[in-house]
Amino acid sequence: MATAAPSLPLRPTSSAAPPFRVLPGFNLTLGYTLGYLSLIVLIPLAAVFLKTAELTLAEFWNVVTAPRVVASYKLSFGMSLLAAAINAVFGLMLAWALVRYSFPGKKLIDALVDLPFALPTAVAGISLTALYAKNGWLGQFLEPLGIQVAFKPLGVLVALVFIGLPFVVRTVQPILEDLDTELEEAATSLGAQRWQTFRHVILPIVFPALLTGFALAFARAVGEYGSVIFIAGNIPMVSEITPLMIITKLEQYDYTGATAIATVMLILSFALLLIINGLQAWTAKRTGRDR
């Protein structure tokens, strides 16, 4: 018996053999994915890097570390992170209200959430500026209190919060809809306080989605130009966003300088998104919801 065992036909374990798939079409879909991604995303991005490569390393470094440009990174990335964080908190609340409660006009509010997606960004910028300028509806009350929003860095934040809101609400909403109220009831019957239920039952479930929403809102905010440009004031070293620096380079016909700054933005954004994705995978694994 023991000697016969090695001669038994074993299943092929060689890694060279393709794994068996129930559904056909793997190669086709992979081909499409790569082809489509290359055409839509990778080729334009490669063009940015290629154009940048016309600069020597020293020139590149000079362009991307100029004081005005560095000040703009701080403003753009700082305000984008802050805006995404604000949206994460209030977007979660909004999604919760939309999922858990029914009230008159709920459908309308649900539709309103998507409006920042649909509105041309320049329109958003002009309306926000009109609202927050010192003669605007809100600005006339804020200005006497010493709070200036329009044409200050705070205005940038307001615009970025506006355009980022739908990302958080729309990523968190489906998760909340799937969340059984039984879970909360069970937690309560086991003696959990409301805060404990939120902290230990609800938050771990929605956290990965919340992070996705945060990442999307952040990514959108970093690249935003249209809505911000009207409300920012655009004073060098104070309220210039990085996309404006790129436009400034283009206005001087400095294409390589523009792509150099774009390259830095791409790398920084990509690194931050990688970190957020990693964080998301880690929390998902930790809470046993590995997908």
């Binding site: 010192k134 003669n135 044409f151 440009i229």
Partner: peptide, 21 residues
């Protein structure tokens, strides 16, 4: 003495005329 530097002439006119800055 310049509180706002718009990116174009039309933007500046708007700031001065519509926003009252």
């Amino acid at each position: 003495h310049v509180p706002v530097l718009d990116s174009g002439a039309r933007g500046s006119t708007n700031t001065f005329v519509q926003r009252g800055i």
